[in-house]
Design a protein around this nucleic acid. Structure first.
Lengths: 353, 353
DNA sequence: TTGAAAGCGCTAACAT
DNA sequence: ATGTTAGCGCTTTCAA
């Protein structure tokens, strides 16, 4: 940052901090044993209304905030659920988080988020860090993890839910869609609508297993129809509209005969769509388009990009339900498996007029 | 969710969990005292290379994960920073988080995120919950908090950094921009470019203090030029492109003479822009437009919406620097104040041709 | 309905 | 360079 753009000064009106209060302080203030105070604060066991009132009053007026660290150590119960995702800038994951919170809000559990930036090493670090807080469960994206990560998850002794993807071997429970299948289905729709010269635009695969699986399913289904992907472009870095424009220009320069572009996410797909419309190209007459995710943003364009909804919110909800259920005992079986259906949203860009 | 879209089954290949390991287990396995094991694992004090190697080896082969709960209780040191933000679906906040993580990644500190959904009550809850884990610092959005929240923050005895906004009384440190000023500056630019019939489109104000302050600064600067905002539309709920389209249609129906639309964020601004372009309206000849935030997404459109960059990433970085500095002792003064400059990005929609 | 004692797993402080 | 002791603030368990 430019130093010129920054004004630093000192705010003088701040009061000095105090020592954090303990149960004992409340105990003294209310004239009740620490144990009873503890019971009141947790709504446990039988406490007379009189003492309850006294204690609550004392705790409130002191501004007592319980120390969960001590509580967790003593009870070996931690109401945290570790949620590990690759990124926050891809809106998919905030949406999954929303689904998780919706469910956990009705339980004593609390999500804590860690971000891996699509790096297995970083995932390992984040996982280690989070497990060291002894969470009640772990929800993490993907089925591909380092050996060490898998070992940690096995040994953690808490429910583990891998989300987003169901194509592979799970450690414990899984909630997601089959990305292979999503790719296959999209391929079938494209072919059924008469497109034949098909291009693919997506992330560099080693970073994104789900995009790779979609691509594999896609090419496989095309192959069955005797069709091959004509050209492909891959990119690294943040997926934005601008990236989609750029890639689309590039692929069409190289392969002007393409009549369909399949994008690995809606953002770059929408960017490509804007580019083509700006160029006055007939979409979907001359070129058809499809993205992936079912992103809300697509509703904002006058032409609706075809996409496939990955049910992100539902994935979050189902995963949270499993963790909550395993934690409160309402689910006893480990190894739950929930496979959701990817649903096509044909929009305007998949049907030849 | 539709039950038909969900396949549930049980994955049988899961191994049973074990009891979590303790320092003692490593101590026994390595034939060294618990204390020494602890020292090795924290790289503290003098330990011979031989024992260090033995211990590390034992810890690794056992798959030991330290218990931070016990560690934190014993040392009364918690390497967590509570970060409290209104929402994850407004990309502004993930960007702030990115800035925070960039700085904290070079320290022992770890951000933990809580989301308030713009509700002061929820903020209070989240804050209470997070403070009960005794974090090393708190970063939270905005200067407006409930009395109880302010009291908790005062009493927490840890550095508190309020971010995004500098217009108001801070509890301890602040990092942000003046939204009043951002509004004023935008007003001046608009007037300077010859627009006179100005409309405002934004969130319902009680929810969003920063949008309100921008609006106040905006109308104030206009008033100084003898201009009044001709019409206004407010909305609730997620800010998307579609919302912007809708609101723009509405305001223009009601006030067809408007020659400028000021949006309270880039998303609705971009939606409005798309709508106007679709309608064949001359932007910025007939109608000028501006949003707020400096969002990356604007780069993806063929016409660039005017906006004002709020420096979100920098805000995160500066806030994290303060917490890190206060924690490691390199900053001793509380009440740091960092005011960033909002910078105009004029784009294509603010200049009458 | 309330209280007292023990201990959760680790680290600070003090030996050796 | 390594070990011992005490105790962090709470909850579990048992007693009254």
């Amino acid at each position: 940052m430019d130093e010129d753009d920054k004004v630093i000064s000192i705010n003088k009106d701040v009061t000095p901090p105090k020592r954090p209060l303990t149960l004992k302080d409340v105990s003294i203030a209310s004239g009740v044993s620490e144990m009873t105070v503890s019971r009141v604060l947790r709504n446990r066991g039988d406490v007379s209304d009189a003492t309850r009132k006294k204690v609550l009053q004392a705790a409130k007026s002191l501004g007592y905030v319980p120390n969960k660290i001590a509580g967790a150590l003593a009870s070996s119960r931690v109401n945290l659920v570790a949620v590990i995702i690759p990124s926050l800038s891809n809106m998919v994951f905030p949406e999954v988080l929303t689904g998780i919170s919706e469910i956990l809000d009705d339980t004593p559990l609390q999500a804590v988020v860690g971000v891996t930036n699509y790096s297995p090493e970083k995932e390992e670090e984040v996982l280690f860090e989070m497990l060291s807080w002894r969470p009640s469960g772990v929800i993490l994206a993907g089925l591909e993890h380092s050996e060490a990560s898998r070992a940690m998850l096995q040994a953690a002794g808490v429910p583990v839910v891998e989300i987003m993807d169901t194509d592979g071997q799970a450690i414990d429970s899984v909630v997601g869609i089959s990305h292979r299948r999503a790719g296959r289905e999209m391929a079938r729709h494209i072919v059924k609508n008469g497109y034949r010269q098909i291009g693919f635009l997506g992330t560099k695969m080693p970073m994104d297993h789900r995009a790779r699986k979609r691509f594999e399913g896609f090419t496989e289904a095309l192959a069955r129809e005797g069709i091959e992907v004509v050209d492909q472009v891959f990119y690294e870095g943040g997926s934005g509209l601008a990236k989609g424009r750029e890639m689309t220009e590039r692929i069409l320069e190289r392969s002007p005969d393409l009549d369909f572009l399949y994008y690995s996410n809606d953002m770059i797909g929408a960017g490509g769509m804007l580019y083509l419309l700006d160029q006055g190209i007939d979409v979907p007459g001359q070129i058809g388009l499809a993205g992936f995710n079912g992103s809300d943003i697509l509703e904002g364009f006058s032409v609706k990009l075809a996409t496939m909804d990955a049910g992100r919110r539902d994935i979050g909800r189902e995963a949270a339900r499993i963790v909550a259920g395993r934690t409160d005992g309402s689910i006893t079986e480990p190894g739950q498996r929930v496979e959701l259906e990817p649903t096509l949203q044909p929009g305007d860009t998949l049907k030849r007029r």
